[in-house]
Amino acid sequence: MTPEPGPMVEAKKLVKNFPGVFAVKELSFSVGKGEIFGLAGPDGAGKTTVIRLLAGVMPPDSGTATIDGIDVVRDPEKAKQHLSYMPQRFGLYEDLTVDENVRFYADIFELPVALRNQRIGPLLTSFGMEPFRKRLAGQLSGGMKQKLGLVCALIHTPKILLLDEPTTGVDPVSRRDFWKILYGLREEGVTILISTAYLEEAERCTRLALFHQGVMAYCDTPAHLKTKMPGKLLNIASPRAREIQKRIQSLEGLSGALLMGDHVHVAVDDDLKRIPEITRALAEAGLPFDPVTVTEPTMEDLFLALLKTKGASP
């Protein structure tokens, strides 16, 4: 999928350095209308910094970014009228109730009172938050807090949502709800830029950027990214998966063994050669395991494999 003409978000050679850290290095990308654009990468990869630059709360050292065609660097206040930003750390007032928080942000965005009241009710109801209107935000569960953040972000019908790890620390059920809401918003034409630490979640994005040390290593649809996986991925199921992982990592040329519950995923160059090799090594160690099979890579496998190839070729 290529971005439509007139991208909603566009970054051109964005650079941001902190003392001793190159947080963002010459970053360029663009996001089209109605996309859910994912930023994935380990802690410290620079996701938060990128989103802050786009939200206009932090100036870049150099480069430009536009939000719906408005230059964020030169005119951040104008760009802010079209976007909503949810910081990684909960940004609402914990000593205010749900209602008070929503009303505050409606007033900050100068919604007429009639329209405000017309929007708050249905939004809270559709997010399942109607019963908690009088509750202090600080007393909500993690999932509820994030939903409240989204309600406040949506109250002024922004064109662009910038969400920084909105599902971190949220239980899986709430996380699924949250994504349902995001898909609904996408249907309405809202452009979403979301960072996540959960790679399985990243697969739900329309396009995904993999970040590593301030550099966007890859950027493509999840399906395309998977085809870039070098070699094959082997799956080994075992009740003693952890020991299996350790054993495999000690083998020559096989450092990338990923533990996934009672499975171990191993990225290999040549499956025909490696399957017998691994089977023999594990049998010698006396570990129980099901027959080794070739499997579809998950995002996590992909990320590990991609970064390794990137690191190998400087």
Binding site: A55, G56, V57, E77, K78, K80, Q81, L83, S84, Y85, M86, P87, R89, F90, G91, L92, Y93, E94, Y105, I108, F109
Partner: peptide, 14 residues
């Protein structure tokens, strides 16, 4: 300190 400022400054408030 409470992290509410980051959200507030992302709005058009002057």
């Amino acid at each position: 300190e409470r992290g509410t400022m980051e959200l507030l400054i992302s709005t058009p408030v002057q």
